[in-house]
Nucleic acid binder design. Structure first.
Lengths: 192, 192
DNA sequence: CTGTATACTTACTTACTAGTAGGTTAATAT
DNA sequence: ATATTAACCTACTAGTAAGTAAGTATACAG
């Protein structure tokens, strides 16, 4: 990995952090460049406009999710373990100072975003939904989960709950988030 | 209502709209003053700093919620109807261009907020939770609702789901939000 | 008629924003 | 040795942000 790639990666990492902490309008190029020991122009070099940067962030997160979910799948394979992987991932992100995921961070600014960023975001969410839907189908088939309604509807419901839970985390800390996970388990008929 | 009070109220109304559409960092004093036909300084006159304005917004929303919930309670009284009132309120807010509620809008900027605004926000959420907890208790006692776990935990779960649902609304429109409501009803054992 | 308070406006400052033009350095290719 | 390219930096622009100081119009009290 040469120096250029490194700087670019560090820009994405830092910007990603800022984005999730403060949203698109909550940080500036200086907030990225200063802690990295580079100048604003370096950021502009890699990402000419802020929207270019944003696009890279969404794609990076999407890629990140793909890696994580494939890790869940390799990890155990059982639906229960995959679901717990999602819970663990959420808690981990929150504790790493990223209580708002990229989707949530973008939500506030959604209407101002260029089309391709909106679409990338929508794909990101659709992928998450499809992944969880398959997990729920699997869990129901194997008798691990017990719930009413279609897996797809249940998947949306769980994702929305977690999404909302991240906001609760900001205000009330981990307690409520863990309560949410318990409630989700309970409503999937999982013994705890 | 004199002119002063009117301008102040209009500032709050407009700011509230902007806040819910774009978040705290997503709008400026000009975005408030221009459409109102006044100058930035007029906004500063009523709310010296942006944080003063924010404080007023949170309190206004809190008051608004109190009025709405008391309306739900008067409206029918049955737990089911109160819950539907919450669903209707959410849909109405989304359609009125306010897909992110004040809590969600603040979430992105939460850590930078002054203490009293954070506390006002926390009180707002606690009040919502208590209200819904009582609705769930009532519904269970009267045999309208059927769910597992404590009412308080279920209340948090539902509020988080709705919170997350508002973000889905931004990206996918009303469909998913209605699906969420259906899923919530289903899991409360309500016939639809 | 005068004094005072309210509700502003005009005109300004300071600080920061995204973005750019052009120069510099170091590595690599020919 | 020379040319080229990537990856920056320095120094800047134009625009916008929140915030302020001082002045003005109106209403109302005494």
């Amino acid at each position: 990995m040469n120096q250029a790639t490194d700087t670019k990666a560090r820009i994405i990492e830092r910007a990603s952090e800022l984005m999730m902490q403060r949203g698109f309008n909550g940080f500036s190029y200086s907030d990225i460049s200063s802690p990295l020991g580079v100048k604003n122009a370096a950021v502009h070099y890699h990402f000419p406009s802020k929207h270019d940067l944003l696009r890279a962030l969404v794609e990076d997160q999407h890629e990140n999710l793909r890696r994580k979910t494939s890790k869940f799948m390799v990890y155990g394979g059982s639906a229960r373990e995959q679901l717990e992987g999602l819970f663990g991932f959420t808690i981990h992100q929150c504790k790493a100072g990223r209580p708002v995921c990229i989707v949530g961070a973008l939500a506030a600014d959604y209407d101002e975003l260029p089309d391709d960023v909106q679409q990338a975001n929508a794909r990101f969410m659709e992928d998450s939904r499809q992944w969880l839907t398959r997990v729920l189908e699997l869990g129901r088939e194997q008798g691990e989960f017990n719930f009413t309604g279609k897996p797809a509807a249940k998947a949306i419901s769980i994702l929305a709950t977690i999404q909302g839970g991240r906001q609760l985390y900001r205000v009330f800390g981990e307690r409520y988030l863990q309560d949410l996970f318990k409630q989700i388990r309970r409503e999937l008929g999982i013994e705890t």
